[in-house]
């Protein structure tokens, strides 16, 4: 009991002394505050889009705002996923974005933020199309080689040309698509950003920032999609 009490006192003292808690073992947050936020960007529109000088997309836009809040300059590194994630693992980058879902296989070696947006892939229909209750043997359009196409096949749906009356798409596209929801959901992606393992001070800062952005994400996605369809 005395040990617990002493711990509590030591903790209270160190917190009241204005220390950051939790802190980073490798001082990421200090580095960022002092100067440069190093961001790896994987091309995955509309989340992140490689550009000539600087990347575009929803996630780079968000990080620009965070960097401004922290008084940091951003160094963008646009590259292939594997290269960037290895660099992130070694702590060379602070964060990598590119529409990552929280079940991506890299998360065993990397840290990830709590999910800040859930992308729901649904089946939508033209207004005059008959209502759907299940997908077996129903032709549904989806991009060739997409995850949505895989989920459709698993549920027994048949491939269809792009202009077909049923289409798989992320729910945030619905308002701009002119389609109606059928009530059928294919799968969900819980969006995260990837960080170096154990840099908890930086991770907490990033998560707090992303929590505040939640209500804007869908609007940002639509804006980005309209800008570069």
């Amino acid at each position: 009991m005395r040990v617990v009490f002493q711990l509590a006192v030591a903790l209270a003292l160190s917190l009241s002394a204005g220390c950051e808690f939790p802190r980073d073992p490798e001082q990421s947050l200090d580095e960022i505050r002092r100067g440069v936020l190093r961001v790896g960007v994987v091309d995955n529109p509309p989340w992140a889009v490689h550009g000539a000088a600087e990347p575009g997309g929803v996630e780079p836009a968000l990080l620009r705002e965070l960097a401004a809040q922290l008084g940091a300059r951003i160094q963008w590194v646009q590259g292939p996923e594997q290269e960037l994630l290895r660099a992130l693992e070694k702590g060379v980058l602070h964060v990598v974005v590119g529409g990552f879902a929280d079940d991506n296989p890299w998360t065993a070696r990397l840290g990830k933020t709590r999910s800040y947006y859930t992308t729901r892939f649904i089946v939508a229909a033209r207004r005059q199309a008959p209502p759907l209750t299940e997908l077996a043997r129903v032709p549904v359009a989806a991009a060739v080689g997409s995850a949505a196409a895989g989920h459709l096949r698993e549920r027994g749906a048949r491939p269809a040309p792009p202009d077909w009356q049923y289409r798989a798409l992320p729910s945030w596209r619905l308002p701009d698509s002119g389609l109606q929801p059928t009530g059928l959901t294919l799968y969900e992606d819980r969006q995260v950003m990837l960080v170096t393992k154990g840099e908890n001070g930086w991770l907490v800062t990033l998560e707090r920032f992303l929590d505040a952005q939640r209500p804007r994400i869908e609007a940002l996605l639509r804006e980005q999609a309209r800008a570069s369809p």
């Binding site: 939790p22 709590r114 393992k197 154990g198 908890n200 991770l203 907490v204 707090r208």
Partner: peptide, 15 residues
């Protein structure tokens, strides 16, 4: 390096 982020608790973000 153990990674511990935040959780949402009654609308607040807590380590």
């Amino acid at each position: 390096h153990p990674t511990i982020g935040t959780m949402q608790l009654f609308g607040a973000t807590v380590w």
